[in-house]
Nucleic acid binder design. Structure first.
Lengths: 81, 81
DNA sequence: AGTGAATAATAATTCAAG
DNA sequence: CTTGAATTATTATTCACT
């Protein structure tokens, strides 16, 4: 079902760097969700996940999907408003 | 030059909704920058611009490029920490 | 280093269907 | 209303060149 899958997605992207929707598909399938890229694309959209460029460990720029609320937490920790 | 173009990009995405890199190319060309999608893709990466799903005026979800700091402003306005 | 043309890779949407 | 297969659209990268 959609809700469980979307929860799983939020947990996944909060837990580790997810670089593409295909990677997300693979991770979800490992957890037993039968899902395709088309659906993940829709989930990403509904969840409002952003694709952002980040610095990798080796210094080069890569991409990662992030939860909007993660940005909030990050920012609040930075500024302590 | 790269720096001027990237400044222009930041201004553009802060000023209005930019939905794709091709749109960015068109807007830049209007300002006299000769640039292609390949370069804009690299600029987006260097600037750390995120592609995020947003609600359009008509209620449907579309995509938009945003500056990370724009997320900060948005969030701070939401929460008034 | 910075870029564009071409290409590969990735992501969004359409179309049909349950 | 939700989904997958196929398709289209978009974006990232490669390769050559400067």
């Amino acid at each position: 079902m959609k809700e469980r899958r979307q929860r799983a997605i939020l947990t996944l992207v909060a837990t580790r760097p997810v670089h593409s929707q295909e990677e997300l598909v693979a991770l979800l399938q490992r957890q037993g969700f039968e899902v395709t890229q088309a659906t993940v694309s829709r989930d990403v959209k509904e969840l409002g996940l952003a694709k952002v460029p980040i610095k990798s460990d080796r210094g080069d720029e890569i991409f990662k999907y992030v939860v909007p609320s993660a940005a909030v937490n990050y920012v609040s920790r930075l500024h302590r408003w």
